[in-house]
């Protein structure tokens, strides 16, 4: 019996959003909610700085969300609301900092680092490939290699000669 009750409650919680959805989309009030939400996600909560307004339940965040709602109700555009906030709290309130001279490094720094890293990687790999490439064997070298393989190495003047070759390379 108790289990059934839990199941029923569980199922009701699944249905609840479905019921809420049509009204939320149908009325302008619902649209307003979505717009408030959208703006709140773009704005930083100043009390708890790593949260957006939408995520935060801080007192000030709630006030600011109400302010956003009110502005929208008065017919302000989303851009106007964002401007209203930056006029008071500065660019810091934006989760997406605007592109200006002072934020260039912020925006393009990571890309620059990536490009720099790729260039370095490329050059290093090229250098490595060049170092690893087999040197052309001369007829002399071949003959010596063949001799070595056959176990007929002679420890005399030949050795010195090849040493000289290696150094030349």
């Amino acid at each position: 019996m108790r289990n059934y009750l839990f199941l029923l409650i569980f199922l009701l919680t699944l249905i609840a959003p479905l019921q809420a959805a049509p009204t939320a989309q149908g009325t302008p009030e619902g649209n307003l909610d979505q717009r408030v939400q959208r703006i709140a996600e773009e704005l930083r909560c100043l009390v708890c700085q790593n949260q957006s307004l939408a995520d935060s339940n801080a007192d000030l965040a709630i006030d600011l969300k109400n302010q956003v709602r009110e502005k929208l109700k008065q017919g302000a555009s989303e851009k106007e609301v964002i401007n209203f906030m930056t006029e008071r709290y500065g660019d810091f309130v934006l989760y997406r900092p605007p592109l200006k001279a002072t934020t260039m490094l912020l925006w393009f720094g990571p890309a620059l680092l990536l490009i720099g890293g790729l260039i370095m990687l490329y050059r290093r790999l090229r250098a490595r490939v060049a170092a690893v490439t087999d040197p052309e064997l001369s007829a002399d070298d071949r003959a010596r290699a063949a001799a070595l393989l056959e176990g007929k190495m002679d420890n005399g003047s030949d050795d010195k000669k090849s040493g000289g070759k290696a150094r030349r390379r």
Partner: peptide, 13 residues
């Protein structure tokens, strides 16, 4: 009481 002027002044702490 509503903190409205606070918001206008950019008060957050």
């Amino acid at each position: 009481v509503q903190g409205r002027i606070g918001i206008d002044y950019g008060v957050y702490g």
